[in-house]
């Protein structure tokens, strides 16, 4: 009886250990993507990292009930996306937007950097003005060079919808940045 209970406990612990190992692989695969998605919304490194941590913690809670483990990538991206939007809404007033090019080392690059920073701010403003559905498509298309099929798979929408949204988003950005 005692041996039976020991065996049962060992089986449960082994299963939990397997689950942890599998999740660690998923962390290594998807953490950067989730961080960049969150960064695309928040544009603050610390906040994006906080969101990434919380998104993975939330994902791990229900990881054992996820039937299709191949869907984890899109699942965690969506969690990170939603959490980043929530954080943006709650902290909108006090978020200090991080500049893209942080360090200015040489005086000759000063003018170039100033122009780049100004341009980056304009681009971010244009992206912010896009509807949420278009914004995520634009961000995902420009992170790790995802194609429309991958984006459609991640967002659980048809590929045609992704293409359409991407087309309209680019046109809108072009008009805004004229």
């Amino acid at each position: 009886m005692h041996e039976y209970s020991q065996h049962l406990t060992a089986a449960f612990l082994g299963m939990e250990e397997d689950l942890k190992q599998e999740f660690e692989i998923r962390i290594a695969e998807c953490s950067t993507l989730a961080f960049r998605v969150a960064y695309g919304i928040l544009r603050n490194r610390e906040d994006a990292e906080d969101v990434t941590q919380e998104a993975f913690a939330k994902a791990y809670k229900s990881f054992s009930s996820l039937r299709d483990r191949e869907r984890f990538r899109s699942w965690v991206v969506k969690i990170a996306w939603r959490m980043a939007l929530d954080m943006l809404r709650s902290r909108k007033r006090r978020i200090v937007r991080e500049e893209v090019h942080a360090e200015i080392t040489d005086t000759s690059d000063l003018v170039t950097n100033m122009v780049d920073r100004h341009r980056a701010a304009e681009v971010w403003r244009a992206i912010d003005s896009l509807p949420e559905k278009m914004r995520i498509v634009v961000i995902l298309a420009n992170i790790e060079e995802h194609d429309t099929q991958e984006i459609a798979s991640m967002l659980d929408v048809p590929e045609g919808t992704v293409k359409s949204r991407l087309f309209h988003a680019r046109r809108q950005l072009k008009e805004l940045l004229k």
Binding site: F23, E24, I27, A28, S31, T32, F35, R36, Y39, G40, R45, A48, E49, T52, Q53, E54, F56, A57, A59, Y60, I139, N142, I143
Partner: peptide, 17 residues
């Protein structure tokens, strides 16, 4: 958007999760 996270982010995620 090609911003890399901190090197210890994965370790922090593991601890938190």
């Amino acid at each position: 958007l090609s911003v890399d996270p901190s090197p210890d982010l994965q370790a922090r995620i593991r601890v938190r999760a």
